[in-house]
């Protein structure tokens, strides 16, 4: 019996692959016959797309080029996209922190740690909950779903004062990792909602097949269904990570020591009362954006599948 389990689970997996393979969305867009569109239309289409692309990319390009300029050149009243005397000084200043005033590495470490912990906690709590909501009927299910629908909309501003007060009472304020508690829970409802959509897309027959194979409910969940929703898990993980990586309000309100800041608040210290250090700010912005970009390129494939096949039922 114990030997037959893995075998049958594999069978269920193959079955699942076939089923979900059939469910895969058609990637081919609908296109009217080419002849019906004029060259003028095509030129107009490209013109609109090119202009939009420029507008969408320009602010980032401006940051990129400015990060290689000196502050004097940045605050110049002539329009120059390219730096006249390209310098790496801003990057050196950020990465080596020669004046011991802007601990970029501490900020990055805090941000990464907080985002990673948020991701792990968020996913591990959301995953089973979403599965249960997708598969089982039980007393209180509607209440739980309704409560998630409502909490999904809670803005941070709503919890700002109470969390501030509660964290103060516990002496937790000022610790970056205390933010994990707030981030993981505030993104839970949406995580569950997305995850549930992914589970819903997996046919229930697979669960039954697993049960028939002798797997317990946990085995079905963990060994058959969960592996099939890896893209969904990636989306939810990514969502949690980005949420924590980007969060500004609670971090601004709760963190005080310079070394305890996360990146969004840390970078704000280049915008000070008596001026803005645009050189360092743009360089740091770029350094912060690059890992997110890489992550995004990786997650994008899953993200789009997830958003269209998971949360959007066509």
């Amino acid at each position: 019996m114990s030997q037959s389990r893995p075998e049958s689970a594999t069978d269920a997996k193959t079955l699942a692959k076939q089923v979900t393979g059939e469910l895969a969305l058609p990637e081919q867009p609908y296109a009217p016959k080419r002849s019906t569109r004029s060259i003028v239309g095509s030129v107009a289409t490209h013109a609109v797309l090119i202009i939009t692309s420029i507008v969408l990319v320009f602010p980032i390009l401006w940051i990129v080029f400015s990060s290689f300029k000196s502050n004097a050149e940045i605050q110049n009243t002539t329009i120059e996209l390219f730096p006249s005397q390209p310098t790496l000084q801003n990057y050196v200043n950020i990465l080596t922190d020669p004046t011991h005033q802007y601990p970029f590495w501490s900020w990055a470490g805090n941000s990464f740690g907080v985002a990673f912990a948020t991701m792990i906690i968020g996913v591990s709590i959301a995953l089973p909950a979403a599965y249960a909501l997708s598969r089982f009927e039980f007393l209180g299910k509607q209440g739980v779903l309704l409560s998630f629908l409502i909490t999904q909309m809670f803005p941070g501003a709503l919890l700002l004062v109470p969390l501030y007060r509660l964290f103060t009472d516990l002496g937790l304020l000022g610790h970056p990792y205390a933010l994990v508690i707030a981030y993981a829970t505030t993104s839970l409802p949406f995580s569950v909602y997305m995850m549930k959509n992914f589970f819903d897309a997996v046919p229930k027959e697979l669960d039954q097949a697993g049960l028939v194979d002798g797997l317990g409910p946990f085995g079905v969940f963990w060994r058959i269904i969960t592996p099939l929703t890896i893209p969904g898990i990636a989306v939810v993980a990514f969502f949690n990570f980005m949420n924590a990586w980007n969060e500004f309000m609670l971090a601004r309100a709760f963190l005080t020591d310079n070394t305890s800041l996360t990146l969004p608040v840390g970078l704000q210290s280049f915008v000070f009362a008596f001026g803005v250090d645009w050189g360092r700010l743009t360089a740091a912005s770029l350094l912060v954006t690059i890992p997110v970009f890489i992550l995004f390129v990786w997650a994008q494939r899953y993200l789009i599948t997830g958003l269209t096949g998971g949360s959007v039922k066509g």
Binding site: Y164, T168, T256, D257, N258, Q268, S269, F272, A273
Partner: peptide
């Protein structure tokens, strides 16, 4: 630690 003048007031109160 450097704390920007503009936010030092509310940060100190918080801390």
């Amino acid at each position: 630690q450097l704390v920007d003048f503009a936010s030092a007031h509310d940060k100190f109160a918080t801390a």
